[in-house]
Nucleic acid binder design. Sequence first.
DNA 1: ACGTTTCTATGTATGGTGTACATAGTTTCG
DNA 2: CGAAACTATGTACACCATACATAGAAACGT
Lengths: 255, 255
Amino acid sequence: MTTRDSKDSDLQRSLTLLWTERRRGQRGPRSRLTVELIAQAAVRIADADGLDAVSMQRVATELGYSTMSLYNHVPSKDLLLEVAADVGAGAPPDLGGTADFREAVRRWVGALWAGFHSRPWILRVPLDHAPVGPNQLAWLDRLLRPLLAAGLPGGEARAAALHLTAVVRGTAQISINMAGEHKRDNGIPRSDADLTHVVAELLDPADYPALTAVHAAGLAGPERADGDALPFELGFGVDRFLDGIESWVAAKSGD
Amino acid sequence: MTTRDSKDSDLQRSLTLLWTERRRGQRGPRSRLTVELIAQAAVRIADADGLDAVSMQRVATELGYSTMSLYNHVPSKDLLLEVAADVGAGAPPDLGGTADFREAVRRWVGALWAGFHSRPWILRVPLDHAPVGPNQLAWLDRLLRPLLAAGLPGGEARAAALHLTAVVRGTAQISINMAGEHKRDNGIPRSDADLTHVVAELLDPADYPALTAVHAAGLAGPERADGDALPFELGFGVDRFLDGIESWVAAKSGD
DNA sequence: ACGTTTCTATGTATGGTGTACATAGTTTCG
DNA sequence: CGAAACTATGTACACCATACATAGAAACGT
């Protein structure tokens, strides 16, 4: 144990490790292992074989160290996963050139959406703390800029950013796994589309009137995602939200 | 193994178990254990000690059975958790008497929000399949009704419902654990409010201009959640979204 | 009524997990 | 040049999900 200071919490300790580069001037041998290296290895494994494949043993052997070495740099697996999620998130897109705030937000949403698609395991990392990694903060910052530029005061911009982040995250969680590449059952890949049919047979239309109505009407959905357009399931809600924001700031400024 | 039909997938099998009550007329002794009982036990444990405390052993001993008995009724722990999440969600609120569609949606959102607060472990159950439990479908149905009544066509109502579900789920995931009753560090409870301060010291304002601006302005937030009002962090976005929906249907019908 | 079938519940065993703890070795400071 | 402090390692433990074989009981066909 490092035991630098007993009041030093695990969380704060690992936070400092994340934010400050290697401190120098300590006694022992300098560590060849770093939090970044460990997190990157975890990301590599999660990318290749999913989040469940990330175990301390696997990460350690991936790096060529013993399992317990990791605990010199990371207090627990849970925190390692949070750090890995931050590392895996990467840097946010640069929206500097986007004048229209709607377009900027849409691009931000699209980038996050794409990120969740390329690393779906991030959605499965349980978040135990407020987002606090450098990349997560950078993403948030990049979203806040167009919202502030649009004329929202601080508190409302924060709420709007939370709303958008939550929408993308929640929508991704709900709809990504429906595509279900990774899902195979008895070796047969199974898209959840069939599943809804299976259920449809079982449920009583009287109990779910709205659902059956929508189900009947909703099958004609040949959605196109040309270029940077968002898929309809995500884009419709985002557009309505931006409509609302726009008229909100218009009403306030015209007030 | 039941091996009723080799094409019968695990998922479908457990779905059938969830939806159809106990079939009769089989050979062996009727089972005293049921999926519902098992799921309820899992819910009880998760309520008491969190999702991590839910193990097959614990569930079994809670019911007074051996560990392996559970596998006669549930194909895997993962599916058990999904069923438990559905059971734990409970029945949706009855919005029958609410004439205003905005008010109905807000009440639905508030109820789901409250549900996630009272059972935060539901947010940690990884969802591997399209929502398909009876309760989840009931919640969805109840949300679709006011949206359809407001004049949205099927596909848009579905997208709007997805948006709202995702918002509540995502916002809950992000902001619930910030309250962090369960979080204690070195035995000292720690609300993540301090945490942001710790980070604030570390980060360079030049890198996160929007964030620091919002942070400076945003501290004056004595939000009140009187009665059935939603907290500002959630309510602002929902209200803007509903604004957008309203003007959308108005524009369409006036068209 | 009876044997056969078919189901439930159990016990045992296996390979994996996160991590507490003690130790050996190495680097830097006083 | 000791001595302190740090890194990496090895061992050990409790627990986990679940594959598999078995025992027993209930309902069916006769």
